[in-house]
């Protein structure tokens, strides 16, 4: 079973991201369960959503405490919420940021995990460019498809098309595809995921 935890803030489409992921997995013939952290979500408040993917029906209904995948939609959460809580040693991490893990001050944490599975992607900027709004959720799913190969970009596109309509769907799909390309390119590149530490280590 693959367990994915998504952290973000109310208004960023955290719950929708988990739902989209479950639809994408369903498109690929798999069983999937997506659910929110059941908070009284408010705009800007930390929000968590979960997605489980498996080849057989999913019976477990507890929150995901030991995720295989972590998607962080808002890097300002990194110093407010223990987003890495329970992350599996082989886990994947995708963070919405222009900065690298080192620049985000996550160098030490990153050392505990497999470097080729950790990446940042400027999802808000990509979203702004395509949607005119910094909504990173669908974009990050494109990045996740590239990072992990656990879900195809076409399934992500299909899920977006299933949940949204017309222009909104088309723009989100375009943004997700760009993130897919960005991440694919970075993974190919020489100094891909964790560029050397730079002068600043401020968050975001």
């Amino acid at each position: 079973m693959l367990q994915i935890r998504i952290h973000g803030r109310g208004g960023q489409g955290v719950v929708t991201a988990a739902e989209l992921l479950s639809i994408a997995a369903f498109e690929q013939g798999r069983h999937a369960q997506a659910f929110p952290s059941f908070g009284s979500e408010r705009t800007g408040a930390p929000v968590v959503a979960f997605c489980r993917i498996d080849d057989r029906p999913i019976r477990r209904r507890e929150p995901i405490l030991a995720p295989d995948v972590l998607i962080v939609q808002d890097p300002t959460l990194l110093h407010q919420v223990d987003v890495f809580q329970g992350l599996q040693p082989e886990g994947y991490v995708l963070i919405n940021s222009r900065r690298s893990f080192d620049e985000l001050g996550l160098g030490e944490i990153a050392d505990r995990f497999r470097h080729e599975r950790l990446i940042t992607v400027p999802a808000s900027e990509i979203a702004l460019e395509h949607l005119g709004r910094p909504l990173p959720n669908a974009v990050l799913l494109g990045g996740f498809a590239a990072l992990s190969g656990l879900i195809t970009i076409d399934a992500v596109a299909h899920a977006i098309d299933d949940k949204f309509k017309g222009e909104v769907a088309a723009k989100n799909i375009a943004a997700a595809r760009e993130a897919f390309e960005v991440v694919t390119e970075r993974l190919r590149g020489p100094s891909a995921q964790t560029p050397t530490a730079t002068e600043e280590s401020r968050p975001c």
Partner: peptide, 10 residues
Amino acid sequence: GFILTHAYER
């Protein structure tokens, strides 16, 4: 509530 009502599944 939430556990089922808000869960996406097949």
